[in-house]
Design a binder for these strands. Structure first.
Lengths: 157, 157
DNA sequence: TCAGAAACTCACGTCAACGTGAGGTTTAGG
DNA sequence: CCTAAACCTCACGTTGACGTGAGTTTCTGA
């Protein structure tokens, strides 16, 4: 996993299964910071940015968040990073507790959202599994019946 | 649960947390069969139709299916019902196995889709939980530190 | 019976999340 | 050094899933 490798739009797009337009769009909408350019103006993506985009796509596809919501989630995550940095630097230590509490609240929110979604999914899975089991049983009986008929046919030849 | 109770659009809309327009739209797009009318042309919903709409909303909100995909899922479910009916009637018994196998395939597909989604969610949940635990621990330490400082302050008064 | 609430049918509006050229510039390989 | 492929920036187009009146008709309860 060559560290420091750089990517073109098309390469990133192919790797992530999206189009270059989507990458431009995310940048345009502020979901990712302005991507560095070559002297000629071509975008150059590094691994960190790509991971951020992967994160966005997961939030979008797995959780069904809108880009609006994703931007808000990401911005709070960025906030958390800033907090961590400031805390690490030891500046404004009187606000550490407040900042950390805020972080906890935000993360708990996301987890709650995920849990909610998982419960709905579990319920639906159960629903479909019930039907599946019933039909499988039924199928097995039918196959037995078919075999029996074939046996009869053979006897009749 | 009064069986046979009938509902107006507005009542259904309120019960399901959508607008009348949405109900009209689903009918327009063939997601639900044409709803029966009063002599004057007002729609009258029965419990079966409402359950179908609830099902649609679950597929949409929990699984993130598009209405297109939902229509295809529902149409295969309807197909399954036709199969069941025909099997129950004992007509064309030579196709039972084939129809049942098809049903199994369709249901397995939906379940696979659900499983896939749940796994992604589980992964994301873990990711966020990790961060949450770390921050909570950090917060606890900070709170201890704050209390210690307060204690110092009291001594200093 | 009759007024006001609720429904109906167009049909155009909207918003997010990109798609799609057009027209011009940069880059990489031979 | 040169050309084809890749990239750039507008800026308008598209699609899905409804929203939003306008104008008219139907329903319901006092």
């Amino acid at each position: 996993m060559e560290r420091g490798k750089l990517w073109t739009v098309e390469a990133v797009a192919e790797r992530l299964g999206v189009t270059p337009r989507t990458l431009h769009y995310y940048e345009e909408k502020g979901l990712i910071p302005e991507v560095p350019r070559t002297p000629g103006g071509h975008r150059v993506y590094d691994e960190d940015t790509i991971e951020r985009i992967e994160h966005i796509l997961r939030l979008k596809e797995a959780l069904g968040y809108s880009l609006q919501e994703i931007r808000s989630i990401l911005s709070t995550e960025d906030q958390l990073k800033t907090y961590r940095a400031r805390i690490a630097e030891g500046r404004e230590p009187e606000h550490n507790v407040q900042m950390l509490s805020e972080s906890v609240r935000l993360l708990e929110d996301v987890v709650r959202h995920i849990d909610d979604k998982m419960m709905r999914l579990a319920a639906m899975r159960e629903h479909y599994m019930d039907r599946l089991t019933r039909i499988r049983a039924r199928l097995e009986r039918e196959e037995e019946a078919t075999k029996a008929v074939e046996f009869q046919d053979q006897k009749g030849e």
